[in-house]
Write a protein that binds this DNA or RNA. Sequence first.
DNA 1: ATGACTCCTGGTCTCATCCT
DNA 2: AGGATGAGACCAGGAGTCAT
Length: 299
Amino acid sequence: MTDPDFNLLTALDVLLSEKSVAGAAKRLELSASAMSRTLARLRQVTGDPLLVRAGRKMVLTPHAESLQARAKNVVTEMRAVLNASPAPLSLSTLEKRFTLRTNEGFIDVFGPALVNAVAREAPGVTLEFVAKPEKDARFLREGRVDLEIGVLENMGPEIRLQALFRDRFVAALAKNHPLAAFAELSREQFVSVGHVIASRRGAISGPVDEALAAYGMSRRIAAVVPAFSAALAVARDAELIAVVPASCLQSAAGKEMIGFPLPVSTPEITVSQMWHPRQEHELAHRWLRQLVRRECRQP
DNA sequence: ATGACTCCTGGTCTCATCCT
DNA sequence: AGGATGAGACCAGGAGTCAT
C-alpha cells in the first residue's frame, strides 16, 4: 500500500480556508492552474468535490467542512514535527492577538489584571475576549479561539485542561440591605427575599433550588439575567439576593455587595483554562497559559 | 560509483467556459 | 466585458532502475 502525497494536506488546508483556487494559489505562490490541478488530485484522493461553484464564488461541500479543522490540525502538527527547534520567544517584540472565550464575569474580575500583565510583558500582544453563550469545543478545534476559560463540561477528549482556581457560590446582598447586618444568613432569611439569577439559557432552577427542596423550601425568582455582573447590579438596586461565584465579588459591581455563605450545600466549581493540543508546544501560547494561571490564582 | 534512460510530478502557458 | 476557474499541451527536474 502506498501512502498518499502528504503535500496535498498543505494544499487542502489552504484551499479550504481560502475557499478559492486563485486565492490558495496566491497564498502558496503557485499558478492558478497548478492549484487547480492540485485540487483535482485532492478530489481524486478524497472522492469528494471539496469545493463547488456557487455563482462567482466557490463553497465547501459538507465533507470539506468536516475536514477543515482536522486538516488545519494535521498541518500545524506536521510543521511542529519538522521544525524541531523553533525560534526563541521574544516577548518584547511579539506581535500577536490571542482570543479568549470566557464569560463576562471572568472578564470583570480578571480582565484588568490580565491586560495589565500582558502590557508589561508583551506590549505587542492584544487580548481579545469573546462572549461564551454556550459551551462548545468547536471554537478550539477550528482554531477560532486560543483559550477557553470556564467550568469543564463535555469539551471533548482531546482538549487540554488546566485548573485555575476553585470557586463556590455565595449569596450577594447590597451593603445597605436589611439582612446585610446579620453575621450569616439562615435558610429562612435566604428564602424570605426575592432572588435574581444569572442563566445564559434562561433556566430558573439549579443546584441551590435542589438543595432547598431537600428541606421542603423554595425561593422566589424575581428576575433572570444573562450574566453574573448583571445579577449583581440588579440585586444591588432592587434589594434582591444574587447567587454568584465568590470571585465575582471582586468585580466593580461586586465590591458594593456583601457575600454570605449559602445556607444550603452546593458543589464547588473548578474554573479551568482549556486549549487545543495543536497549541500545546507553541511557545507564545505556553507563555499565555502561564500568565493566565499566574493572574488567576485563588481569588 | 556513475552515467544514461525512463517515468512521474508539478510547473507555466493558453484557451474555453461560466457567471455576474 | 471582465474576472474566476478548469483543463489540455508542453516542459523541467527529481527519483528510480539498470548497465557498465
